[in-house]
């Protein structure tokens, strides 16, 4: 009797759990429970950020302690002491270099030649893509700092992406390399030609579509935001540089690949442009 009851209970359990999952997915997909789900995500993000900072603070000293493990014997102790002093000096030097580099990065952001006049919020990247199926980064600024979903994010070299969700202290930015990202761009000598730069996944080049065959292009040519798409992005922000282009006789459009202008693999400091998306 128990043998037949057990599988039935198991089937009931898995059935109920699948039903619960599909219900949650449907509610999120239709947007019916968007407010509740967003509130839950925001609360989780805000609650977790101190833990994340705390763990970072803990793991650094552990690493230093392991690196400076003490050997036995007087001479070894003296050597260790000297090594520690050298290490401290080197770490001070590295800290100064790191500070100088950070300052340089921030100064670059202060002297951007594009998006002049648009108020901006300086931010630091605190974590990289949390999913293997989306190209995103998390910044240390949120709604409390005036950041809202839809705002463009730029680095010192060009467009990085767009804020897709915010909590009070953090925000998630979908990068231009995400497979779901599409940015309207201008190119050509007079920047009159229009195309679409679409993401193709983390670390990959952008696919530039709607370029007429036979168009005069050159390697290294800079694509800038068009300012169209209902004003999602301000105009003339560098998006990518053309890496390669080709076209066959029967093709209806040129095959163009472009590398993001901003170094998305080494992001540290960025600016969130307080640019209200029209849509």
């Amino acid at each position: 009797m128990a043998r037949t009851r057990r599988p039935r209970r198991t089937r009931l359990t898995i059935g109920l759990l699948i039903l619960a999952s599909i219900t949650i997915i449907t509610l999120d997909y239709r947007g019916d429970a968007h407010g509740t789900i967003s509130s839950l995500k925001n609360a989780a993000s805000d609650a977790f950020s101190p833990v994340q900072r705390g763990v970072d603070d803990i793991t650094h000293p552990i690493g230093s302690f392991l690196a400076g493990a003490v050997n036995g014997g007087e001479i070894e102790q003296e050597n260790a002491k000297l090594r520690q002093q050298v290490g401290n000096l080197q770490s001070q030097l590295l800290a100064h270099q790191a500070t100088a580099n950070a300052l340089k990065s921030l100064q670059k952001l202060d002297h951007l030649r594009w998006a002049q006049g648009i108020p901006r919020v300086a931010a630091q990247v605190v974590s990289l893509n949390s999913s293997n199926f989306a190209a995103t980064v998390e910044l240390n600024v949120g709604a409390r700092n005036g950041v809202a979903a839809g705002m463009p994010v730029v680095g010192s070299a060009g467009l990085v992406g767009r804020v897709t969700s915010t909590s009070s202290t953090r925000c998630t930015v979908t990068l231009i390399t995400d497979a779901g990202s599409a940015v309207g761009v201008r190119y050509g000598a007079a920047s009159l030609d229009l195309a679409l730069a679409q993401g193709d996944g983390i670390g990959k080049n952008l696919d530039v579509t709607y370029v007429s065959p036979g168009t005069a292009l050159h390697k290294g040519e800079v694509l800038t935001t068009s300012g169209l798409q209902n004003g999602i992005y301000p105009p003339l922000i560098p998006v990518a540089r053309i890496r390669s282009f080709s076209s066959s006789a029967s093709a209806t459009s040129e095959t163009v690949s472009a590398a993001p202008a901003a170094d998305l693999a080494q992001l540290q400091y960025v600016d969130v442009l307080q640019w209200p998306a029209a849509g």
Partner: peptide, 20 residues
């Protein structure tokens, strides 16, 4: 899955279904 979904940008509930 529900816990993971709280920190992912993908559809909420997808990890819950797959993990289950």
């Amino acid at each position: 899955g529900v816990l993971a979904d709280l920190f992912l940008p993908t559809t909420f509930g997808l990890s819950a279904l797959v993990f289950c």
